[in-house]
Design a protein around this nucleic acid. Structure first.
Lengths: 357, 357
DNA sequence: CTGTTAGCGCGTTCAT
DNA sequence: ATGAACGCGCTAACAG
């Protein structure tokens, strides 16, 4: 079907690209009015068989496809969704984006993407700019202030957040239950016998980090001391922070995320510190590569593509009326793998030796 | 500046989102004609100071932003670029996308993204569909046939390929010199003393795989036997193929990519096969996580974001006239890390034992 | 320097 | 069932 049109064009020459055919060209070609062409293509009104055939033939011959800008102008809608992420290099966000994109593609929507480079200041502008071209925005793990977010929500047609719930403003959101996730990790560590764990902090501006902190305040206590260590959200951050964690005298390290944990794990390996024999390590998110490292990472599973799909669903739902505030909570699940074990007295002793090299 | 506008709107109520202001609203508000507003905003013609101030004030007050669909309709251009990738979960493509997006953002362009799920059949449709909304397409590692690609290039306004050069059709492309990369890996392995290496093949439809095959034909010979093993492009493919590679009796495994190699590495670890003592392993691309596994992966570096940036540059360059055919070749560089070593006689013996468990 | 007019490509009314 | 005419929001012509 499409072959005819495209091949016909390809034959016209080397670089001569004909201007795109308009609906008028098709109408002329088919010997009907533009309105009839439109009716055939949208199916809005019935059209007799004979003219319909002529129109379809003309469409195929010319390779005609309606101009989305014109359609959008008329409809006042773009059939596009914008996705704003802090960092596409982070597999977590890449997966969420994939989830949104696939769902959107399925619904015949385009996906626009913007990368803010982990800069909180760039989020508002990116979202605002994308919103001009889209019917709404999916904002992933925004680092901006609550005030800014509320403000943004009123400036963007439809805004959905991923991993950020806001009490006051009624912004639809899908978020992992970080408290539950952190709690289950803490429980696991405590049951193994750990009494002092180092926590590698994520970006302080991230809502998910604050949620983790809430959980840590609950979980921490006399039988589980939490040592806070500033870190970040990338694997290099984890790599850097690993030494500090080691020096803290903790028997286990809880990382902000898998991505961070992988960095720490690499550093432990460089230092010759055995995981989990000398120190236990946990992640968060269960990214694909956590199953591929050695030892495999104990973490908490989150279906990141599903997060994207649900965000899309929220985006769609929020379209009909001004309904807002629907919040989806995704429950993560602890997966115990090889990176955690009971603490050994030997751990701290051997570590001294190791540091010598 | 923007605060005024957005705050003013936010105060109007809970869910009541006023329809976006048009240029006419602004004109009325400022007591001028729409043309004057346009002139102020685009700077196309000079405007007196006093009306200009009124216009700017009105714009801020109403939170007006021009409708891109209308502008696009008029200009016949979208200021958007479409990126089609086989799989966003693959860090390689996520990085390329990031490169394109950042460059595009810088030039005030939007990025549309489509994920084809590694299905060659979906590529054409995705590209065609995106091209309706964009000024052109960046096609990453297309798996489609050469014929299809040529055909597509004539149906899309501007097409740039990443990691796919095509002799016949003059499609701008930026591609890694896979032959050189594979050759340097082979040389490295041979110098270490390996005589029989298993190659974990990528998708047979991928151009980069065929390029690797060309290099292997040159590199292979009496002093370096290449055992071909069907595999794929994901880490789970590598995980699966690792057993076959082991059974081949090779002393080294050369994976299609880092992503694949990481899967194989995980499998070796599960089997208790020591890398590089019992078997050497190489990747391709140098993704971030290859530095984080143990042992760190010997591979070939490719700046993936740079690939995206260069693709963007080609996209821009191909805009002016019908200039085509410009092809950029990126030279990868061997990085020897911990996953390769000289083969040991012990390797094959110990491996027998390991298989028992 | 400014306002008025026309038209980008399309879908949808209103007539026929 | 079909065609003619209008207008979506904007800017480039053309007047004044």
């Amino acid at each position: 079907m499409w072959c005819n049109a495209a091949m016909g064009r390809a034959q016209t020459g080397t670089g001569a690209r004909p201007p795109r055919a308009t609906i008028i060209d098709v109408a002329r070609e088919a010997g009907v009015s533009p309105a009839t062409v439109s009716r055939v293509l949208t199916g809005s009104k019935p059209v007799s068989a004979e003219p319909e055939q002529r129109v379809r033939a003309a469409v195929a011959r010319l390779g005609y496809r309606p101009n989305p800008a014109a359609q959008g102008l008329l409809r006042g809608t773009t059939s596009a969704v914008g996705v704003v992420v802090p960092d596409l290099s982070n597999p977590y966000f890449a997966e969420v984006l994939k989830g949104v994109t696939n769902a959107a593609q399925h619904a015949d929507f385009r996906t626009l993407v913007a990368d803010t480079g982990e800069k909180a200041g760039a989020e508002r502008d990116a979202a605002l700019e994308l919103s001009r071209w889209a019917d709404g925005i999916v904002l992933c793990s925004p680092r901006m202030s609550q005030w800014e977010l509320t403000e943004l929500a009123s400036a963007v047609p439809r805004l959905v957040c991923v991993n950020r719930r806001s009490r006051g403003s009624r912004i639809p959101a899908v978020a992992v239950d970080f408290e539950a996730g952190v709690a289950s990790i803490c429980r696991h560590l405590r049951e193994l016998g750990h009494r002092r764990v180092a926590y590698l902090r994520g970006p302080s501006r991230a809502w998910s980090e604050r949620a983790r902190q809430r959980a840590l305040r609950t979980a921490g206590g006399p039988d589980l001391e939490i040592v806070q260590i500033p870190c970040g959200s990338s694997s290099v951050d984890g790599h850097r922070a690993a030494d500090v964690a080691l020096a803290s005298g903790a028997t286990a390290v809880m990382a902000f995320s898998d991505y961070v944990a992988l960095g720490a794990l690499a550093r432990f390996d460089e230092l010759g510190v055995a995981v989990p024999e000398e120190i236990s390590l946990t992640g968060f998110d269960d990214i694909a590569l956590s199953r591929l490292v050695s030892p495999r990472l104990t973490t908490v599973t989150v279906d990141k593509q599903d997060l994207g799909r649900r965000a899309w669903q929220l985006f769609i739902d929020s379209g009909a009326d001004g309904r807002t505030g629907s919040t989806v909570e995704v429950m993560p699940e602890l997966v115990v793998r090889g990176s955690t074990a009971a603490p050994t007295a030997a751990g701290s002793i051997e570590r001294e030796i190791v540091h010598e090299r």
